[in-house]
Write a protein that binds this DNA or RNA. Structure first.
Lengths: 182, 182
DNA sequence: AGCACCATGTAAGTGGTTACATGATTCC
DNA sequence: GGAATCATGTAACCACTTACATGGTGCT
């Protein structure tokens, strides 16, 4: 069975929403979909070259309102077709590696205090995520109410929120159990 | 920053529970921790060699009750120390790539019927996982009540169960939204 | 005899991160 | 002038999957 990088489809999907250069793609991912996706520069730039070579995206000179010139990539018609073809046909694959569960599964081997500390820092991350998600949800409601993707984005945010809450509750519970051990 | 494969720690963790050969490790993972971890033979065998070379595990000839001989790997004292050192000191890293969320986030580009089909097969997987988890939970209660790892295993199962249920509910909701579109 | 499963390993190739290098632009 | 950020890219290296090869064992 052939494996193919999903980076290319991620870039097509992102560029189909808004034209950007490589640097902006990275920032977009970081600030918008980082709760379920990430890409590094080392992947983005070579993939952009490949996509352009294949005619799925094209580089444009864009002049913004202030007259400044800027290079951006746009998805071509065949790029959009290829993206949709992939979306429609490739089955969803879920990767299964969860270090948090790993640590708890083999938790007996850990110093309960250290496990608790690691759980704490995991909780911090989750709380920050949750905060960012709330801001994002609000933005969606006020500024992007009429955007055609609104409903889809909202659903993913809802998932992310519920997952974060589940994580927090569960970690709290594990921490409780650890307390008994000390 | 140095990256190091987690495969080695997974193998140390597994072998610290029970002595096994490479083939059995694979089966163990498949049947027990597959809901949060996986390893392929292409990783397992080279890693076993490396661990033995480093003195963290050792090969033994084991004669079982019926007199048959069998090779198994056991964790050495320094192997256990190394495992515990890693458990105590390495921060939990969560990978962020969720194709299910990806598909929904860019869902506008999909044929709603095809998205629904993909969601259906994802639900099937989740339901099977859930069924397996229930069996596992029961086993834990009846056969492994007194096992020192019982509490930890139970916690991970609880997490996995809740996550599966969250997935199912959310997918159901997305499916509902898709129905309106057709 | 043949099939299923046990068992071990290697080689090729992909996917991905990290670190490094370089230079332009903007802002103070 | 100097720092931060914008911007692009490459090279080295690691992790991991897949496919292939090989042979043993046990059952029917």
């Amino acid at each position: 069975m052939k494996r193919e990088s999903k980076t290319q489809y991620a870039l097509l999907g992102i560029l189909s929403q808004c034209e950007m250069n490589g640097y902006e793609i990275r920032k977009y991912i970081e600030s918008t979909i980082s709760f379920f996706w990430n890409e590094s520069f080392g992947q983005i730039y070579p993939t952009l070259s490949k996509l352009e070579k294949d005619g799925l995206i094209r580089e444009w000179e864009k002049t913004d309102v202030s007259g400044k010139k800027k290079k951006v990539y746009k998805v071509t018609r065949s790029g959009l077709e290829e993206f949709r073809r992939w979306m429609d046909t490739s089955p969803i694959q879920t990767t299964k590696r969860n270090e948090l569960l790993f640590k708890v599964f083999f938790g007996r081997h850990m110093n309960p205090k250290l496990l608790t500390e690691q759980l704490d820092s995991e909780m911090e991350k989750q709380k920050e995520d949750l905060k960012a998600l709330k801001v994002f949800q609000k933005e969606l409601k006020t500024d992007w109410e009429k955007h055609p993707d609104n409903e889809y984005w909202n659903l993913t945010l809802e998932y992310a929120e519920k997952l974060s809450m589940l994580n927090l509750e569960w970690i709290q519970k594990v921490k409780g159990k650890m307390k008994e051990k000390r």
